[in-house]
Simulated assay, not measured.
Amino acid sequence: MHEKISAALGLTTFLASFLPWLEVSVSVTGLGSLGGSSTNAWGAGFLAWFSVLLLIANGAYSAMHTLISHVPAIDRSLVGMVAGVAALAMILLRWVTFPAGNSVATTSAGFGLYLGLVVALATAAVSYRTFRQSDATLQSLKDRLVPPRP
């Protein structure tokens, strides 16, 4: 089930990447609003588009292993947790580093950014839940990945 949810979250991320992530509106006192513009994740800077790529890659990884081969659940859930937390941190960092507005132009986060935050959080949460259901710990994962010293 985790794989299907992660694949759906990857697809949702892809769609969200084309929605507005950064919005700019221009207004002049006495004249009112003169218009505005927006950009999607692909034009909002490295942190925006790289976080999108992480979440899409995680969804594709989950879908691939659902359709092609069997991989232990702990491995997929750990990849999902890392991708989700990293993407969440990058999106938040991108949000707080948006250009500051001034008396003429104001900047704000668009719907795509909010959706990206929700998807990143959901990816991390679903993966964490799967990790915990597998009765695994980080120590057991380390024991599997790092060979014992002779």
Score class of each variant (00 low, 15 high):
residue 145 L to Q: 06
residue 80 G to D: 03
residue 23 E to M: 13
residue 145 L to K: 08
residue 15 L to F: 11
residue 56 I to E: 06
residue 115 L to E: 11
residue 91 I to E: 01
residue 144 R to L: 11
residue 20 P to V: 00
residue 121 L to Q: 01
residue 62 S to Q: 12
residue 36 G to Y: 09
residue 93 L to E: 10
residue 5 I to W: 06
residue 97 T to E: 10
residue 97 T to V: 03
residue 117 L to D: 13
residue 132 R to C: 04
residue 94 R to H: 03
residue 42 W to G: 05
residue 85 V to D: 09
residue 36 G to A: 10
residue 44 A to Y: 00
residue 45 G to I: 00
residue 58 N to G: 03
residue 87 A to M: 00
residue 140 S to F: 03
residue 61 Y to D: 13
residue 90 M to V: 07
residue 132 R to M: 13
residue 40 N to K: 06
residue 38 S to P: 02
residue 100 A to S: 13
residue 128 Y to E: 04
residue 117 L to K: 04
residue 89 A to S: 09
residue 128 Y to K: 13
residue 58 N to Q: 14
residue 97 T to I: 00
residue 126 V to I: 08
residue 48 A to L: 03
residue 70 H to P: 00
residue 24 V to T: 15
residue 146 V to T: 12
residue 90 M to R: 03
residue 71 V to K: 06
residue 64 M to C: 00
residue 52 V to D: 13
residue 41 A to S: 08
residue 134 S to C: 01
residue 107 T to L: 09
residue 147 P to Q: 10
residue 58 N to P: 07
residue 105 A to Q: 15
residue 18 F to C: 03
residue 49 W to N: 08
residue 79 V to Y: 06
residue 87 A to T: 05
residue 14 F to G: 14
residue 44 A to G: 11
residue 27 S to F: 13
residue 9 L to P: 13
residue 70 H to T: 14
residue 39 T to H: 03
residue 56 I to M: 05
residue 85 V to E: 06
residue 37 S to L: 11
residue 138 L to I: 12
residue 112 G to V: 00
residue 58 N to L: 00
residue 6 S to W: 05
residue 66 T to Y: 14
residue 60 A to I: 08
residue 131 F to G: 02
residue 123 T to A: 00
residue 93 L to A: 14
residue 24 V to D: 02
residue 20 P to K: 04
residue 90 M to E: 08
residue 95 W to S: 12
residue 114 Y to H: 15
residue 85 V to S: 12
residue 99 P to Y: 03
residue 136 A to L: 02
residue 11 L to H: 05
residue 102 N to A: 03
residue 89 A to E: 02
residue 52 V to L: 00
residue 3 E to M: 14
residue 83 A to D: 06
residue 81 M to P: 08
residue 96 V to I: 11
residue 63 A to N: 09
residue 112 G to W: 08
residue 46 F to G: 09
residue 102 N to W: 10
residue 75 D to G: 04
residue 130 T to M: 13
residue 76 R to E: 03
residue 117 L to N: 09
residue 87 A to L: 02
residue 150 P to I: 04
residue 146 V to I: 14
residue 63 A to S: 13
residue 135 D to N: 15
residue 42 W to M: 00
residue 133 Q to R: 15
residue 4 K to N: 08
residue 93 L to P: 04
residue 99 P to D: 02
residue 33 S to Q: 13
residue 37 S to V: 07
residue 139 Q to F: 11
residue 16 A to G: 04
residue 136 A to D: 14
residue 111 F to M: 14
residue 93 L to Q: 10
residue 141 L to G: 06
residue 122 A to T: 10
residue 74 I to S: 05
residue 41 A to F: 05
residue 104 V to Y: 13
residue 146 V to G: 01
residue 130 T to C: 15
residue 113 L to H: 07
residue 106 T to L: 14
residue 77 S to D: 07
residue 75 D to K: 09
residue 128 Y to M: 10
residue 126 V to R: 06
residue 52 V to H: 10
residue 95 W to A: 14
residue 117 L to R: 01
residue 111 F to Q: 10
residue 112 G to R: 10
residue 20 P to E: 10
residue 145 L to N: 11
residue 59 G to E: 03
residue 1 M to W: 12
residue 113 L to M: 15
residue 89 A to C: 07
residue 67 L to F: 15
residue 87 A to H: 03
